[in-house]
Design a protein around this nucleic acid. Structure first.
Lengths: 207, 207
DNA sequence: CCTAAACGATACAGATCTGTATCGCACTTG
DNA sequence: CAAGTGCGATACAGATCTGTATCGTTTAGG
């Protein structure tokens, strides 16, 4: 009799359903481009060609769909990070520059519309939402990785340098939504290098 | 006959109506705390005790109400800036530090819920909205003032320094919405000082 | 004092929102 | 073949959204 509950048969992709993929793809694009609150599930249904029942089968609520969107953005973001890290070998100083470089290019890209995690957190200030948990995870991880690199280059205060680099990056993410990609965001890489220089004492106090 | 059009009689405060004030106060508080899209005009009406007709008399659309909210935030923001500037006399280097300091304190404050201008721009990516114009004005002005100060301290590249400081500040504004005020945002002042030091050559390259 | 305007209250229009219910069809698996 | 499940289509529920229309009533200016 316990059989019926323990089912979990092979007949449940649970993740790889093509319909689920299609819905998530369309929703991600719309959420990112237009904002989450601005996009209704009906729009996602219409654009994806799926049925509303299918959407709610794979994502019990819109909040879950949003969380899935962010979860995938999170995975993709650090997958790219890992690639860049691997290409830098074991040279943390070079790796830092490489990250600043691709992040600057990321912002300059044509499809860029801000940081999905910052955007979500600002759209939904209420705490406890599934999407906010993913956003927090993303920014924590970003800080954690910069902290490791800051230690790797023997920064005087690694915590402080990691903080500063995160600020500079999030500032470029956010400000570009107001003053554009050719605004202050253009100073991301140079600013990062300056902060690294001070933190490592590559510059010595004068006078 | 032209009389009826040119009226503009004293019987039109057009700005100082107590009802208008009350509506704008309540709307500003709600928009800032909960987000603009999350707050309906009905809520503003209920909380303000005003009539819906009154709201739409003073603010033809919700967009206009949002713009009025941001317009006042803009005025208040630079009013405070001016106070700090005045207290710094004609010493741009000290003034820069003073601004970094009060901005850091601003973020730490209990009622802080991010930057109204960044928040609005992120909530409404569509261009041309009245609120976005105010947001752009605010960030432009911020950059303009930092540029003037950067020139005042004879920074090597004033534009670059102004860019970097704006990024750092907006980063603190935005990141605090995810990792909290005790997260990376705590590094705002120190990070700013480091950028200024490099830009002015207060640190000289070593090796 | 009298007229015009501001105001509160209420109802309403029309759209849109999230989420559910119900149908019949296709496919797969036992 | 039979049963279960995914799927599309559609209708619907109930709430909420922006904005308008229509009432009196109050208030202030010429």
């Amino acid at each position: 009799m316990a059989e019926t509950i323990e089912r979990t048969s092979k007949r449940r992709p649970r993740q790889n359903s093509p319909v689920r993929e299609k819905i998530l793809n369309v929703a991600s694009e719309l959420f990112y481009r237009n904002g989450i609150r601005a996009v209704g599930v009906d729009t996602v249904v219409a654009e994806s060609g799926a049925a509303k029942t299918s959407l709610y089968r794979w994502f019990p609520t819109k909040d879950d769909l949003v969380a899935a969107f962010l979860e995938r953005e999170h995975r993709d973001f650090f997958a790219h990070w890992d690639k860049v890290a691997a290409a830098s070998g074991d040279r943390p100083r070079q790796e830092l520059s490489a990250h600043l470089k691709w992040l600057a290019a990321y912002i300059t890209g044509p499809r860029y519309r801000g940081c999905p995690f910052l955007n979500m957190a600002i759209e939904f200030p209420e705490s406890g939402l599934p999407g906010r948990i993913v956003a927090h995870k993303n920014k924590s991880e970003l800080h954690r990785r910069f902290l490791a690199l800051a230690k790797g280059i023997k920064a005087k205060s690694p915590e402080s340098l990691a903080d500063q680099l995160v600020l500079l990056i999030d500032g470029a993410f956010a400000n570009s939504q107001v003053l554009g990609k050719k605004g202050p965001a253009r100073a991301l890489a140079d600013g990062g290098e300056a902060l690294i220089a001070v933190a490592t004492g590559t510059f010595a106090k004068r006078g």
